[in-house]
Amino acid sequence: MSWRNGHIMGDTNVSDARGRSFRKVGRTVVMLALLAGAGLTLSACGGVRPLYGTSASGESTKAMMAAVEIAPIPGRVGQRVRNELIFDTTGGGTKAPSRYTLKIVLREKVTKEMVLRSGDATGEVVTLDAQYQLVNKADNQVLKTGVATGRAAYDRYDKTFSNVRAQYNAQDRAADTVADSIRTQVAAFLATSA
């Protein structure tokens, strides 16, 4: 113990170490309680299953996805989205007889980024918004509707060809994101509802 400014000071190193160890134990207890609560919540939810396991009807989700026909989408970017979805649903193999049709409408927007004082933009962002419908071919009933969005940025250059190539690359990246999002949403729906 020491005497400082009229107060008796104890061994501060010991009390600080005790305080830190108590806080550490307290945080560990709280984390364990949260993990136990999350485990109980998940165990009570009997509907959790792997996305590409079997569906609620017992059929393979992969086989159900192979039975989805992707309707044509106009434009170069639409063709990119369609091709990605076809490859994702069939794996590049032969297509199963189609039971569903996936109709997609794309909207593209280009936004200027990093605008200089002169008004020139040094970069742009391509945004693709897709609205889709999954239709049952047997009765033409819409089973699911949804939206997917993809964004990709690119730099602008002095050369025209470089700008066009950079924009195409950004469109392709945004299209891949949209296709992946739609595939995941449709697979989740088919796994749980069809």
Rank of each mutant, 00 (worst) to 15 (best):
T41G: 09
V68R: 11
D88E: 14
E84D: 12
G78L: 11
I86Q: 02
Y52G: 04
G92S: 02
V110E: 13
V68L: 07
A56I: 06
G146H: 14
E108C: 11
G78P: 06
V147E: 12
A148W: 02
K109L: 14
L102S: 01
I70E: 02
E124H: 09
P74K: 15
T101Y: 05
R117M: 12
Y132L: 03
G78S: 11
T94C: 13
L51C: 02
R80A: 06
E108F: 07
R107P: 00
D139L: 11
Y100V: 07
Q133R: 07
G47V: 09
L116N: 09
L42I: 00
R117S: 10
F87S: 15
L42E: 03
S98D: 05
S55E: 05
G119A: 10
G39P: 08
L42S: 08
S55C: 00
V126P: 11
R80I: 03
R82C: 06
R107Q: 07
A148F: 04
D139P: 05
L102I: 00
K137I: 00
S55H: 09
N136Q: 10
I70C: 00
V126K: 00
V105H: 11
T41V: 15
T111N: 13
V110L: 07
T41S: 15
Q141I: 09
D139I: 06
T101I: 06
T54V: 14
T122C: 04
M65Y: 10
L106T: 12
